[in-house]
Design a protein around this nucleic acid. Structure first.
Lengths: 229, 229
DNA sequence: GTATTATTAGAGTATATACTCTAGGCAGTC
DNA sequence: GACTGCCTAGAGTATATACTCTAATAATAC
């Protein structure tokens, strides 16, 4: 792999593990066993590294949130959207942790991120629109739908912080993708009142799969059986 | 005022304005026109300053969230809770911005904050319980109520970050308490399906007062009339 | 093979940051 | 007026951090 890509990969890994604030360019270089000079040959500064990682993140989420306009959405689509958004959030989890500082120190990033958020919100909106057409979730009128989409976005992007600050350090403080996906339970909770009678039962069953306590049990079993995490 | 208190006050002010990460102990001392030595006579380190500010914040929010157990709750109580929680959040807004880092670097703070969050969640839960008793919001059974309380908490604590990252920099990027309180619109949106028929209309009217577009207009008028902010 | 370009090492630097240390002032008290 | 305890100044320090510079090496082109 090219050094440039290895730098991006290692940076992401270290940022996710220790937080951007705790990872210096010298750390990154040391972790890769390359010289600081080498790192700075490939990137002008730390901000540039972060910006490029953001571009990857953006691309991934945009891909996950693509909406098929030639067919109606299904319940499976909804599951896919929720699952994959959290995969993305997990892979780039350092990003939301120091978001405000990062945006403050890089204008490009600030502007790109703003557009990114708005694109995500529009996508969520459109998904609910299509779920209404498909007779799964009736979320109308438009201003209710967009206020709800915004709430969903807030829950999704803040769930990780909630886990880390209010839940973790019960034990080893290790956080997993499984924990992260409990947010799906929270999002589906929001949707309950708007489910159509035809789909209510099925969504409620789906929601149960993400119920926190259940997840703890599953994780326990997984650990005994050899955890993948 | 005692030097010690002036340090706390100035620190809070600077943290809120520039973010904790961008404010050094030397900045604080300079801002107060005292020597670094003097600052360190009153506080062992930066963490201690932050911790004491947190204690104030905690005390304030605990006070705001007190629940009268000798009488039913009214709609005015609900308004008061929402309004005052955002007053608190605004006054100590630096705190949630760098929350994860702050908790990582101070064990006391981490543990205290965890209990604080749980206390807040319990309070929100209890408020909904009492609002149900008062026939205002019917939020049952218990697990639905607590999942919803958690969602409310996530929206409340993440709203500021949303404004800063997705909204601000449209113009001067200045954020005001008024903007912050648009979160009340978002919270009331969540509650809509659970409003009892007797109160539905009144809550919907209350909600309209916080509708974002309306707020923009109000702010526009305020600016023309000489903004207080 | 040689010229050119791309990549890398590694020592080094300017600045910042959290914090220390010593000396001394000032208010009250006997 | 000297003693005591609290408070303050301000110079100073160890460490970290982002980043630079030069020289050397590897890769590629001709």
């Amino acid at each position: 792999m090219k050094t440039r890509d290895r730098i991006l990969l290692s940076s992401l890994e270290l940022f996710n593990e220790r937080g951007e604030r705790n990872v210096t360019t010298n750390h990154i270089a040391a972790h890769l066993a390359i010289s600081p000079g080498n790192l700075y040959y490939h990137f002008r500064n730390k901000s540039d590294i972060i910006y490029e990682i953001f571009l990857e993140y953006e691309k991934l989420v945009d891909f996950y949130l693509e909406i098929p306009e030639n067919r109606p959405l299904t319940l499976d689509d909804l599951t896919f959207y929720l699952e994959s958004v959290f995969d993305g959030l997990w892979s780039y989890r350092f990003f939301h942790r120091d978001l405000e500082y990062l945006l403050d120190s890089d204008r490009r990033l600030r502007e790109d991120y703003r557009e990114f958020t708005n694109r995500c919100l529009a996508a969520i909106n459109r998904i609910y629109e299509k779920l209404a057409e498909a007779g799964i979730i009736y979320l109308q009128p438009e201003d209710l739908r967009s206020a709800m989409s915004l709430n969903v976005w807030l829950i999704i992007t803040n769930w990780m912080a909630y886990l880390k600050t209010a839940r973790a350090s019960e034990g080893d403080g290790s956080l997993s993708l499984t924990h992260l996906k409990q947010a799906i339970y929270q999002v589906l909770t929001l949707e309950i009142p708007y489910l159509t009678p035809e789909y209510r039962e099925r969504v409620m069953i789906l929601r149960e799969k993400y119920r926190p306590e259940l997840q703890e049990q599953k994780r326990g079993v997984a650990l005994v059986a050899g955890d993948r995490h």
